[in-house]
Structure formats: structure tokens, C-alpha cells
Design a protein around this nucleic acid. Structure first.
Lengths: 224, 224
DNA sequence: ATTACTAGGTTGCGAGTAG
DNA sequence: TCTACTCGCAACCTAGTAA
């Protein structure tokens, strides 16, 4: 029944790159033995793979008695571009440097963070179990908005108990900088909150306020 | 005899990317089944592959009874970065747009291009057999220098006959733009030349001057 | 010099399952 | 849940070779 086997073998990517090096939008001469040598397989395998890639529509070929020319097809170029943008996302993550001033909260953070419905998600998604309490930081509102504009948030889902429902929140892993050390933490942004953009709620595996002997007005630096 | 098998399987790259998405320099939780699901293999294969990658030194792991955390090692990050820069080179090749004015040459281009020692290399490396003659283009010297500064040249080696030796040259594939068509060509840059940076010698599969009915002073546009 | 077939060995895969 | 073992079978590899 010839199922639509559209899974692309990882190996194909090596070949696509090898072709692309020589030309992205043109026919290039690439013999099976040269390809074989450059990606470290046998000439026979190179031959088979190029045939497969042609069948899959990644490349088109013109095979002659004394060689072949090959050209990347849209599907092949798309695959390369997808990989490129994945890697781009990984390596060009721009770090946000934030400086803020410690302020008093209302103390309700302590209550919410402790709830099981959130706690398990924090553990799974942030990779630490937060201390039951939040650190409230005042930042200038430009920085606050920049943070809001960030795309890469981790989502913590809301949940409901018999008595009431609790809203979701998004958060971003952060590192608090302190005497050349970095302390793992996270900024949380509840979807429903009383705070404006200029107040950040920060959680961490333990009580930062005590650990770093901070008091209201202390300045804290963080990277996100 | 346990040879130093340091060939990296293509599949490993998929895994490295998957880890890197979650954190480049930190321990991340990544269960074998979640990895399996996200790159489209079985849990068993994911388990085997992660073990292999640990042995190869691409990642380090801490395996617990109920999961594992994994962290990219230098070798793993290097591999990702290498790939990234390969793709970067491919996609961020900045195209040079050149406009020039046709001028008369000394006619010696015709002689050199025709020599077998060059001709075969042109065929192999440029993918066309050039018409025996060059098109001389005057460009402004800023453009000329930009071209010289380009990194990606194809090298044509010099050679010697019984009588004399002929010097090498570098060249760059180019497209001549003419009435919405692009004509394959190449700019050649002999290492020893009488021309300054402001004169480009262009070769093509046929006589451009006749084909496009050009005469001295005609303006030509090219992308490299 | 090419491409690519066949043949037979090797590696990789994942279902089943233990811990 | 988790990791990871065994094992049968499928996929993949390359040497030899034809064209």
C-alpha cells in the first residue's frame, strides 16, 4: 500500500550541506566518490543515498556516463533552512540583563507557590522546586516591557480545586548574579496579576532574601 | 585493538539539537521517551543513543531511578557550532552586485583561456568550458577592492610546459544580468596581472560580446 | 574516470520485559 | 513512571564488479 514514508534520514542532511556548499540554486557537479570522501562513507553508499534523495524529491539529478550534476530542490533547501533556523535560535538567544530593586510583596506569593498544582509543574519544567515565597523586584518599565516581549516563556498551566480555580502563568529561567556566582531562579508572570510591568516576581530553590542577606531596597542583577 | 573510532553519527546531531533547545549550558531533564518522541525513534533507541553519546563524550548524564538529567559537553557544543557556522556560510553569503563598463583588452586573454592547462580546470571547477576570450570590465575601484576582499574564491592552479610556466589564478562564479536572464560567467583574477583592481576579466561559456551585441562602453550588471 | 547492481556481513531498530 | 537489557529481523553498509 506504499505508505507516505516522509521521514528524512539524518544522513541526508550531510549530503544537502555538501551540495549547498557548492551552490544553493545551481546545478553542481558532485561525483559519488567525491561525496563519499567528504562525508566519510563508501562510494556505493553515496550512490544509493543520492538516488534515494532524488526519489524523495530533495534533489534533482542529471546522470551521465562520466559523472552527474545535482541541484537542490525546494524541499531540500527548506530542510537546510529549517535546521539553520533551529540552530540560529539556539545560538543567538539574546540574553537580557536586568537590574532591579527589592521591594516588599503582599506575601501571597508564599501561598500560591506552595500549591501542589503549581509545585509539580515548577519541578518538571524549571528543574527545581521553588522555595515557598517570591522575591519582588522593581525594574524600570522599559526593561519590564522588554521582558514581556520575550518570546520564549515556559508555560505553567492553571488548575482548579473543589473550592476555586487558579490561573496559569508563564515564566522564564533566570540567573541571579551575586559575587561572581550565578544562582538559578525564574521570573514568573501570572496571566492575572495585580502587578504592572515594572514589578517582577522571582522564585528560586531557596530563600534568596535570607541566603544573600537582602533587605528592601537592595539591588539585584539578573540575566534571562 | 580498540581503534579510535571518532566518527560521529548523523543521528547524534538531532539529539544535540533537542538538548540544546532546552539549555545550552545547563543540566536539563530529558527522558528517553520524550527524546524518542521528539526525534521520531523508539524509547529503546533513544536510550541506546544517549548512552553512546555519553561514551563519546558529547554529553554527560546523571541517571536516576525515575529519569535523567543531561548536559552538553564541550565536544557536543562544538559539533553544534560547527554545523551552525557551515549553514551560516551557506545562507548568509552576501551577494555582490557589480556594474561595469565594457573596455577593450589586449587580446591576450584569448590566448591564455584557450590553454589546456587552464581549460580542464575551468571545466571541472566552474562547471563550464569558457569561450576563448575575456570580457574586460571597468568598475569603480571601491567595488573592485570589495571583490578582492571576498573570501570565497575558486583556485585555478598554474602549470608549466617545456617552454614556460603559467601562473595560477583565482576566480568567482558570477551571473551576468541581461533582460531578466542570468548568464553564467566567472570573474578571473590572475595572481600576476597587469590590471588594477578596477578592471575585471570575465569569462563565460560563449562570446558574451557577440551574444549580447555589446561594444566598448556598454554597461553590464553582474552578481557574484 | 563514472554510476550503480548484487551479495553477504554488520549495525541499528524496537517489541518485550526486568529492575 | 523511569532506564536499559536481550534478541530477532530489517536496514544499511561496502567489496566486487558490470557497463
Amino acid at each position: 500500500m506504499g505508505e507516505n514514508e516522509s521521514l528524512i534520514k539524518s544522513r541526508y542532511l550531510d549530503v544537502l550541506i555538501e551540495i549547498a556548499r557548492q551552490g544553493l540554486n545551481e546545478e553542481v557537479k558532485l561525483s559519488t566518490s567525491r561525496l563519499a570522501a567528504s562525508i566519510g562513507i563508501s562510494q556505493q553508499s553515496a550512490s544509493r543515498i543520492m538516488k534515494e534523495m532524488e526519489e524523495t524529491g530533495l534533489v534533482s539529478r542529471k546522470v551521465f556516463i562520466d559523472g552527474q550534476v545535482v541541484k537542490l530542490e525546494k524541499k531540500g533547501i527548506d530542510l537546510l533552512q529549517e535546521r539553520y533556523s533551529e540552530l540560529n535560535k539556539i545560538f543567538s538567544k539574546k540574553k537580557l540583563k536586568i537590574t532591579g530593586e527589592l521591594v516588599s510583596g503582599l506575601g501571597e506569593g508564599r501561598y500560591y507557590i506552595g500549591l501542589k498544582g503549581y509545585k509539580k509543574q515548577f519541578k518538571d519544567k524549571l528543574n527545581f522546586i521553588p522555595y515557598s515565597g517570591t522575591l519582588n523586584l522593581r525594574v524600570d518599565s522599559k526593561t519590564g516591557r522588554e521582558l514581556q516581549a520575550m518570546s520564549e516563556f515556559i508555560l505553567i498551566e492553571g488548575f482548579r480545586t473543589k473550592k476555586r480555580s487558579f490561573g496559569g502563568l508563564k515564566c522564564a529561567k533566570a540567573k541571579i548574579e551575586h559575587k561572581n556566582n550565578q544562582i538559578v531562579a525564574a521570573v514568573i508572570k501570572p496571566f492575572r496579576t495585580v502587578h504592572g510591568d515594572d514589578i517582577l516576581e522571582v522564585i528560586a530553590p531557596y530563600c534568596i532574601r535570607e541566603k544573600l542577606r537582602l533587605k528592601d531596597g537592595s539591588r539585584i542583577r539578573m540575566t534571562i
